[in-house]
């Protein structure tokens, strides 16, 4: 009977012990649903995304929503004062969250957020990077790999061009951004394992 849900997509890490597991899950679902809808709305605006098959649109979103949320909500992880702001607006320190049962994923999220924010990307760059994160042809269950790959390449080219234009003296930024993709996969895997463990409990 774990009493905490240490995910910032929740309004608060505290779980009402009177509530059943199903009720806790329902409440959590209501909390993150608007964020997931925003990811879908974002995807719909990526030029070419709506031209993919419906099956592939769903597959990309199912596989990539967590990673997109990590990028979009990197600022919830304050590396200076080592706090995480939950969707309810309250900040919790790393020590507090650790005492609530947060594990390695928390540290990894801090590391990722710090490195991403330190790149100092503007909104347009971040948005294009997020599109690259979402449109990945190697996600499982993609039926038309060629179409997704073509869109992915177009987006990567656009990102490189934008970064080169905006940061002419910092050519490493584009490489650093691409290296964030495997980091996000790793965070996604860790998160899936924690979700599974939570469900088992």
């Amino acid at each position: 009977n774990r009493m905490h849900l240490v995910c910032p997509m929740n309004t608060s890490p505290h779980v009402d012990p009177q509530k059943s597991g199903h009720e806790v899950w329902e409440e959590f679902s209501h909390s993150f649903t608007p964020a997931v809808r925003e990811v879908v709305e974002f995807a719909k605006k990526i030029p070419g995304f709506r031209d993919l098959t419906q099956h592939d649109q769903v597959s990309l979103l199912k596989a990539g929503t967590f990673e997109v949320l990590v990028v979009r909500f990197a600022s919830l992880f304050d590396v200076t004062d080592r706090t995480v702001t939950f969707l309810g607006g309250k900040k919790y320190s790393v020590d507090t969250l650790r005492a609530m049962g947060a594990g390695d994923l928390l540290n990894s999220m801090f590391d990722f957020s710090e490195k991403l924010i330190n790149l100092g990307l503007c909104e347009e760059e971040m948005s294009l990077f997020t599109a690259v994160v979402l449109v990945s042809a190697d996600r499982s269950g993609i039926e038309n790999v060629n179409s997704v790959e073509a869109l992915q390449e177009t987006l990567i080219r656009a990102l490189r061009s934008l970064i080169t234009k905006n940061h002419p003296n910092e050519s490493a930024i584009f490489t650093k951004l691409l290296l964030k993709l495997p980091d996000l996969r790793s965070l996604n895997n860790m998160h899936s394992e924690e979700l599974l463990a939570f469900k088992v409990h």
Partner: peptide, 27 residues
Amino acid sequence: FSDPANNLGLEDIIRKALMGNLEERPE
């Protein structure tokens, strides 16, 4: 949210949002 077993109902949320759930849109 990889949610392979759709435990979080993620696929349902995504499908509804993709199709444009008119019922949930403000007037």
